[in-house]
């Protein structure tokens, strides 16, 4: 099974921008990832968390902009890697301009209940690619299947 080609394994999910659907997406993507035996349970958990964060960001953007459009998630299990693409129709953002949070030892840190989602995505994925513009954001998460 090592290195098996799942080139026809593209799955696409279209969900309403509602928080209740985020669990559905990470569950489905986690099950797809589990098809390949080369991804450990720990890495599948990492993948589920990264996907959940990316879909949550998309949900927040659609909610903030009051958009009715669906969020589109594509999962491609190909030879050697699993690639997940999360597409929203929001106004876009610059991942390099996300403000830093106060140091954890600063009491001010407790006033920030959000702001770690994207750093978690970057930390957990083998590769994170963001394409963003006025018409939306596409976040691609790549997990290598031979990476434990």
């Amino acid at each position: 099974m090592n290195g098996k080609d799942y080139s026809s394994g593209m799955v696409e999910l279209r969900i309403p921008a509602q928080a209740e659907y985020i669990q559905l997406v990470r569950t489905v993507i986690g099950e797809i990832a589990a098809i390949d035996p080369n991804l450990s349970l720990g890495r599948i958990a990492d993948l589920r968390l990264a996907v959940s964060e990316a879909v949550t960001n998309a949900y927040r953007e659609h909610t903030r902009q009051n958009l009715d459009d669906q969020i589109v998630v594509r999962c491609d299990l190909t030879k050697g890697k699993i690639e997940i693409e999360i597409n929203d129709q929001g106004a876009g953002f610059n991942p390099n301009e996300i403000p830093d949070l106060p140091n954890v030892e600063d009491p001010e840190r407790l006033n920030h209940e959000s702001g770690v989602g994207f750093s978690l995505i970057r930390e957990l994925s083998d590769e994170t690619i963001v394409e963003t513009g006025k018409n939306g954001t596409k976040v691609r998460l790549i997990f290598n299947l031979n990476n434990g």
Binding site: Q23, S52, T56, R109, L110, H112, E113, S114
Partner: peptide, 19 residues
């Protein structure tokens, strides 16, 4: 079974409230 940054944020807010 699962915790993400939204859950972390809620727990951070809880710490701020009790402190």
């Amino acid at each position: 079974d699962f915790l993400d940054s939204a859950g972390l944020g809620t727990i951070i807010g809880a710490l701020r409230r009790v402190r």
